[in-house]
Nucleic acid binder design. Structure first.
Length: 440
RNA sequence: GUGGGUGUAGCUCAGUGGUAGAGCGCCGGAUUGUGGAUCCGGAAGUCGCGGGUUCGAUCCCCGUCAUCCACCCCA
């Protein structure tokens, strides 16, 4: 009885073309981040459960994949480990654990899978890669500015031109909510509603706020602030009595002013309704939007209190996370991958005929490989037509024909499947004729 | 987690309460050293799974799983 061969819900197998696409994007992400001085980091898939609890809010906690205790304790149903839920909390743990070995300003990037027990949807999976960059140890707004620039560089290098880098500030939001006399316990609920303003409109948000238990007088004050297209100048006026919010506005103004000198400048836009779900953010928050995706391509922000939860002493930190899967979904739909990413691996197929010595073909293949060519050897004797067909179906552009005629004359016949042209060259010229670039 | 759509050949999808279909792809041949075009032929499906109604279910009903869309939330 065959067993179901599907991967577990929300998990995927990556076939060769999938892997090539993923590696293409990851290479660009890593390259750009390295140019900004970020260094690579990897952390374990599993974390102790107490490392992760209390960092993501109730909703996040519910989506965590927890691991049962093993051995005799398994039956108890207790969990002591969990699959990592993001790359930020493990980073905070690493900083607390290895503080003495890390530089004063620790800048790291990390591309690894994370797991969430969410319901799968387009661009949403239960196992997915995040590409994080974070800078630890500075409160300067240059950090936010450079992170936005790095992310913009990545997206531009991938071919995106129509993204928006939304920018907001946690303390501006809490300032608005507090001045509207919304109790702190309802801030989260209120933010979720406000976040939908561009989607469901003022009436929708009004209904949503009411449904979430916000007093109507408070709701009206909030709507008054957000409804009329709040810019930073107006925010200053409206929140003149809330010093903390004014400081937040000042930070946003700094980031925007500084970003004019970076690639992020044209893409950055203050969005007062941007909220973001993770509970650890304390300062500026960012998110990338593209028109064809309802969700975001990535997001980030400042979290000056998170490392302190491990260390007992606060260390400022700020980071950004790109969602690899979301980027891949959009790039695939828009056909943004260059041709070399789509093509098969081998540049040349070496033929093999019935009754011919395989050693000759092996020798030719290894000779070509020594010249840097990617060479696939047809593994069993077959009709030439079959071998051509195979090469064509694999996307291999050239076939090196080595049969009895060629061996007798000491030559090689080369067929270019893209043009149909066929040439005969001496064995010594074969590598160059097949496109090898001599490195010596 | 809530609501709705879909599940039939490798892929895209038709179809009917009475023995299962097309296009594309695949395989073979025309062409035993020449792919892509054309022609001829061929293989292939417990109609997602389990139960129920029925003389009989791929079709109707219930459940379940998968998948997609919207909501929720998010990368």
């Amino acid at each position: 009885m065959p067993v179901n061969s599907r991967p577990a819900r929300g998990m995927r197998d990556f076939l060769p073309e999938d892997v090539r696409r993923r590696e293409y994007v990851i290479a660009i992400v890593s390259d750009v981040y390295q140019r900004y001085g970020f260094e690579p980091l990897e952390t374990p898939a599993l974390e102790n459960i107490e490392t992760l609890t209390g960092k993501y809010g109730d909703e996040g906690h519910a989506l965590m994949f927890k691991v049962l205790r093993r051995g005799e304790h398994e039956a108890s149903g207790e969990t002591d480990l969990a699959l990592r839920y993001d790359l930020t909390v493990p980073l905070a743990r690493v900083v607390a654990e290895h503080r003495g070995k890390l530089p004063k300003f620790f800048k790291r990037y990390q591309v690894q899978p994370v797991w969430r027990a969410d319901r799968p949807a387009r661009g949403r999976f239960r196992e997915f890669y995040q590409c994080d960059v974070d800078a630890i140890g500075s409160r300067s707004m240059l950090i936010e500015t450079e992170l936005c620039a790095a992310v913009s560089d990545v997206l531009m290098a991938l071919g995106f031109r129509d993204f928006v880098l939304k920018l907001n500030h946690r303390r501006l939001l809490t300032g608005v909510l507090s001045s509207a006399e919304i109790p702190e316990t309802l801030h989260g609920a209120a933010l979720v509603a406000i976040d939908k303003l561009d989607k469901i409109g003022i009436e929708g948000v009004r209904a949503e706020l009411a449904a979430r238990g916000i007093a109507s007088t408070s709701a009206e004050r909030v709507l008054e602030v957000f409804a009329g297209g709040l810019d930073l100048q107006r925010a200053r006026d409206v929140l003149a009595a809330v010093p903390d919010a004014l400081a937040a506005i000042g930070e946003l103004e700094d980031i925007i002013a500084l970003s004019a000198a970076t690639s992020a400048g044209p893409y950055l836009r203050f969005d007062p309704t941007l909220a973001r779900g993770l509970s650890y953010y304390t300062g500026a928050i960012m998110e990338i939007a593209v028109p064809d995706l309802p969700g975001s391509l990535g997001g980030g922000g400042r979290y000056d209190g998170l490392i302190g939860m491990f260390l007992g002493e606060d260390i400022p930190a700020c980071g950004f996370s790109l969602g690899l899967e979301r980027i891949l979904v959009v790039m695939a739909e828009r056909g943004m991958f260059p041709a070399h990413v789509q093509r098969g691996v081998a540049a040349v197929l070496v033929t093999l005929f019935e009754g011919e010595p395989a050693e000759e073909a092996l020798r030719l293949a290894s000779e070509l490989r020594a010249h840097g060519l990617r060479v696939e050897l047809y593994p069993e004797p077959d009709k030439l037509g079959k071998q051509f067909k195979y090469a064509a179906s694999r996307g291999i552009p050239r076939v090196a024909i080595l049969g009895s005629d060629e061996r007798a004359r000491g030559v090689l016949t080369i067929k270019d499947l893209t043009t149909g042209a066929q040439t005969t060259v001496g064995r010594a010229e074969a590598p160059a004729a097949l496109g090898a670039v001599d490195e010596t």
